[in-house]
Nucleic acid binder design. Structure first.
Lengths: 122, 122
DNA sequence: GTAAACATTCTCATTAATGTCAGGGTCAAG
DNA sequence: CTTGACCCTGACATTAATGAGAATGTTTAC
C-alpha cells in the first residue's frame, strides 16, 4: 500500500511516516516511480511505534528494541538480523524497569490522594 | 539556600532550576537582592521532578500532579491549595496506567527475547 | 576596595517530534 | 490532454527540555 493508505489506517500523518523512515524505524520499499510501498505488517508496526512513543520512548530507543519486538508472534530467533546488540537491549530493559517503578510509585500516590478527597467529599 | 547550593545538592544545573521556576513547578522565594531562596524541602522536590521527567512526564503533567505528591508524608489534605483539579488528576492517572501497561508488555517481550538468546547461546 | 565567586536577566543554540508549505512528478478519470 | 488527487523532496516553523554566553549586579574574603 502507499503512504496515504497507511496513514489513513493508522491515524498517523504521512509526514510522520516519512520521518519514521528517516530515523530508521520503518523501512518501506520503493516502487519504480519513487513511491513508498508498505506491506500489511507495517500497520501493526506503526501502531506499536506510536504506542512506544506515547509511553515516552525516543525513536532511538525504539530503533534498538523494535527489531526484537516486531512480529513477535510468528518469528523464530533465526529470523533476527544478526542479533541486535544484546547489551544495549539489557540496558533498555533496565531503563524500562526503572520507569515502571517510578510510574507505579506515583500512580499509588495519586490514587491515595484521590481516594482521600473522595472520602472527604462524601 | 541559594540556587548554587540547591544545584550542587541535586545535581541539576542552575539553568534548569530557573527553568523549572519559569514553567511553574518550583517556587523559590526572592530575597531583597533578587536572589532565589530555596527551603530544605526544595531538594526532595527537585529530585522528584527529575525522576518524573526521566519517566517521561512533561513539565505540564508535573505541574498538575506534583501539588498532590509533594511532601506527601507530613501533610493533611487541608494543607492542599484549594484542590488541584481532580478531574485532571484522574485523567493523568489514566494516562499513567496506560503507560505502565505499555511498558510492562514491552518489558515482557524484551525479557522473553533476551532469554531466548541466552538459552540459545548457552 | 578590589578580585573572585556567585547571582540576575536576556538571548541564542540544539535535539526530538511534529506541522506546514512550496515546487514538482505520477496517475487515473473524464 | 487536462484536471485533481496523491506522491516526492526540501526548507522552514514550533514546542519542550536543555546548554551556553553576554552584560551586569552582589557578596565574600583578602
Amino acid at each position: 500500500m502507499k503512504i496515504g493508505e497507511l496513514a489513513a489506517r493508522t491515524g498517523v500523518t504521512p509526514r510522520l511516516l516519512r520521518y519514521y523512515e528517516q530515523v530508521g524505524i520503518l523501512h518501506p520499499f520503493r516502487s519504480s516511480n519513487g513511491y513508498r510501498t508498505y506491506g500489511e505488517p507495517a500497520v501493526e508496526r506503526v501502531l506499536q511505534i506510536r504506542e512506544l512513543l506515547e509511553a515516552g520512548f525516543t525513536t532511538e530507543m525504539i530503533r534498538e528494541v523494535l527489531p526484537c519486538l516486531a512480529d513477535s508472534d510468528h518469528r523464530a530467533l533465526g529470523d533476527c538480523p544478526v542479533v541486535a546488540d544484546l547489551d544495549g537491549l539489557r540496558h533498555q530493559l533496565g531503563s524500562i524497569e526503572r520507569r515502571i517503578d517510578t510510574l507505579q510509585r506515583n500512580r499509588q500516590a495519586i490514587k491515595a490522594y484521590l481516594r482521600a478527597w473522595e472520602d472527604a467529599g462524601a
